[in-house]
């Protein structure tokens, strides 16, 4: 066996909020901030995905840069002077949170209430929300054309939820257009390319070709898009149905870790169980085999576990 190659990673030293920080070369500013224990809000950032720096909530000030820079994507450099809580930074974060909060349903997005308080974001100050778009209207929006209204209501992406298969739903009223599902479906992981960003501007949306239903699209139901969705726009149908019925209760759920039994790869599964029923399946993002990804069998093929004989006791 040949010798194990030794890689010596260079480090870079930068200043964050006045403190010197040393991180391995290639780290992002966000990595460096995390190493300092700083809490930088992120939405489109995913630890298993290529940064797209689209949400702009993680912006920081870098001395010498005319504009703020996205900490999730910008590499740390020697001598960089970074400020994570300047007035400009706080203002931008507040506005991004307001822009999203006033146009998107963030009711199932983690941390948003805390961030709104921390940055003084008040999404309601843009006025009452405009009525939701009829089914399919946003999917037919033509680039470069819009209906302006009178400004008395705030435009939103509200629209009916798309339910076209038994596995998961797409509630694009909750979509912040973070691109993570597109990346997970595309070159970052699955290479299926069933979805892409379509349209332009405020009418930009995640879509299959011509808004075709998922069963007609290239979707293979791996659910890796659900795994990376930060807002609950993509959701197990089982979770969606429970939420609709008012029965979703995370405090009553347990998580059972196991290994997928379908093939020899050995993917880790986390079975989320409520009332002795599997309500969704995830895999740890930091798992060396899956990086959070599964295939349709591991993700959705769990019904056999809980098939109960007619009349049998509910397992209690």
């Amino acid at each position: 066996m040949s010798a194990v190659p030794v890689t010596i990673r260079r480090t870079v030293e930068l200043q964050i909020d006045g403190d010197a920080v040393r991180v391995p070369e290639g780290s992002t500013i966000l990595d460096a901030c995390k190493a300092r224990g700083l809490d930088i809000p992120t939405l489109c950032y995913g630890e298993t995905l290529t940064p797209v720096n689209a949400c702009r909530v993680c912006m920081v000030e870098v001395e010498g840069s005319r504009v703020l820079v996205p900490s999730c994507a910008r590499k740390a450099e020697d001598g960089m002077v970074v400020r994570t809580r300047s007035d400009r930074v706080d203002h931008s974060r507040k506005m991004v949170l307001e822009f999203l909060g006033s146009s998107v349903d963030l009711s199932t997005t983690q941390h948003v209430d805390r961030w709104n308080r921390e940055y003084g974001a008040a999404p309601e100050r843009y006025g009452p929300p405009a009525p939701p778009a009829p089914e399919g209207a946003r999917d037919r929006a033509q680039a470069g054309r819009h209906h302006a209204g009178d400004g008395q209501t705030a435009a939103t992406v509200a629209q009916p939820v798309k339910i076209d298969n038994e596995n998961y739903v797409r509630d694009y009223a909750k979509c912040i257009l973070c691109y993570k599902c597109v990346e997970g479906c595309g070159t970052d992981w699955q290479n299926t390319f069933a979805i892409a960003v379509a349209g332009r501007g405020f009418d930009a949306r995640i879509a299959t070709e011509f808004d075709a239903p998922l069963p007609d699209s290239a979707c293979v139901y791996c659910g890796n898009c659900i795994a990376v969705c930060p807002t609950g726009a993509l959701m197990f149908k089982s979770e969606y149905d429970l939420r609709q019925a008012g029965g979703w209760d995370e405090s009553a759920q347990t998580v059972t870790e196991t290994i997928c039994s379908y093939c020899g790869v050995g993917c880790s599964l986390e079975l989320h169980v409520q009332d002795n029923t599997i309500v969704k399946v995830t895999s740890p993002l930091d798992h060396g085999v899956t990086h959070g990804n599964l295939c349709v069998k591991g993700r959705f093929g769990f019904q056999y576990v809980q098939n109960r004989a007619p009349g049998a006791d509910d397992g209690a």
Binding site: V52, N53, A54, C55, R56, V57, S92, M95, V96, F99, L100, S102, S103, Y126, G127, A143, G144, R145, H146, A148, G149, G151, A154, A155, I176, L177, V197, G199, R200, G201, F202, D203, A204
Partner: peptide
Amino acid sequence: RDESCGQCVPCRVGTVRQQEAL
């Protein structure tokens, strides 16, 4: 508003909120 590509939040929503205020 029409010409924003829609990629980043400040421009995608900011151009709409700017128009509404005007």
